[in-house]
Simulated scan of single mutants.
Amino acid sequence: MKTLFGLLLFISICTSCAKEQNLIPDFPVNFNMPLTDPRLSRLSSAGGAVSFSGYGVAGIIIYRRADNAYVAYDRCSTVNPDQKNAVEIDDPNLTATDRISGAKYSLYDGSPVKAPATTSLKRYSVTIAGNTLQVTN
């Protein structure tokens, strides 16, 4: 009986851990755009954010932090990622919200700031090469 209980407890823990991760699938991202492109004008100062469809799982968000570093995330919400719900940039540009679940994420580091989100947005690499902003994974 103790063995059966132990086995059920182990399976329960493993199952709950798998659900908690809410992994966003890997999807090739290769975004390149000149910093002078008008579509990136919101990134001209700290706190600016832009989003683009057609990249990653549900699109990408690029955010310029107060330290002038750029960060990029997949727009796919980590709540029910199989549904591929795209988060939307809030006004002001400090957070992004999954309108389906109500989950909210910080654009500074992608971390969840409102339940039911428990996992950060998937982050991509951002580099500036000359005058071109590149987002890759």
Rank of each mutant, 00 (worst) to 15 (best):
Y63N: 12
A46T: 13
Y70G: 03
A46R: 11
L40N: 12
S44R: 15
D67H: 10
Y55L: 11
C76A: 13
G56D: 05
P38C: 11
T78I: 15
A49P: 01
L40K: 15
Y55E: 00
G47T: 13
V71C: 05
G54W: 11
Y70Q: 05
G59C: 10
S77E: 03
G59N: 04
Y63G: 01
G54L: 15
I62C: 03
R75D: 00
Y70V: 10
G54S: 12
A66G: 07
A69R: 14
Y55Q: 02
A49K: 01
Y63K: 04
V50N: 09
S53K: 08
A66T: 08
Y70A: 06
S41C: 08
F52C: 12
R65G: 03
R64S: 04
A72V: 07
G54R: 14
D74R: 06
G56W: 03
R39S: 14
Y55G: 01
D37M: 14
G47N: 10
S77H: 04
R64W: 03
T78V: 08
G47S: 07
S45N: 09
R64L: 06
G54T: 11
V57W: 02
F52Y: 14
S44A: 14
A66M: 09
D37H: 13
S44W: 07
A69T: 12
S44N: 15
V71G: 00
A49V: 09
G48V: 12
A58T: 08
R64C: 03
A49R: 04
P38F: 13
A69H: 07
S41L: 09
C76P: 00
A72T: 06
N68S: 13
S51R: 07
A66C: 08
R65E: 00
Y55R: 07
I61N: 02
A66W: 08
D37L: 14
Y63W: 13
A46E: 08
G56L: 14
A49S: 14
